[in-house]
Amino acid sequence: MILLAATNVTVRRNERVLLDGLSFEAQAGNLIAVVGANGAGKSTLLSVVAGIGRPSCGQVTLNGTPLQMLGGVGLARRRAYLPQNPRCEWPIPVERLVALGLTPVLPAFGDLPDSLQPRIDAALSACDLLSLRSQAATTLSGGELARAMLARALVGEPEVLIVDEPTAGLDPRHTLEAMSRLRAVADNGKLVIAAIHDLTLAARYATRVLALQAGRMAAYGTVADVLTAGLVRTLFEVEASVVTTPRGAFVDYVIREASDRR
């Protein structure tokens, strides 16, 4: 069954067209990597697909229901969204930060019901945060904060997880860990849509790739079908080979010498 569908989504801001007539369908169990150059419209697309930004025309549906019909809280119970470089403004303990992911299911007043505590413990455990649960969120390292935010997004057990550049600012180890966790979420039957700059990461971890060029869809399909040297040239104006190895594909960029560039 189709989980999430965008139909003819167009976003205009001050006469600028940020997204131009995008249509695609995304099914549960996939990790979709949204790729494209800076300014191609990746963050705008994720925001619209998450129901936070409104399209100028077209619509996004979740299991056939337009997102705006679900209401803010109804939508929040079914999808989680992490913007680029998410941060916490107050030094609240990690456990309370993760608990904020349960906001849509909390009663209007009062403390967190005891019945929800196992979900917080499970999210902390899944993201390897049990030893940090009492630490102030503002004192976490980049990798730890990324894990805490992912736990915050997962604690509500969403059907759809939308993440904008989940590996920005992370070292290789934490980058690989973050991508493994996202892939595990997808393998668990959820839909994950993530904007990713590193094409090798997209090749290794994503099940499908959605390529954007100047607000238009340049390609959408499986990694093997879509991620080609031609696409890299079209999107980024750089030469590259997409090399397939037994461990998966990687993108080998052709770096021209300074003399060639002159």
Partner: peptide, 21 residues
């Protein structure tokens, strides 16, 4: 405003995604 202010600790984008008006 209490519940909404808690969610706003994560910034406006995340608070909005958590259903905060």
């Amino acid at each position: 405003t209490g519940r909404s202010l808690d969610a706003l600790s994560l910034g406006e984008a995340q608070a909005s995604s958590l259903g905060i008006n």
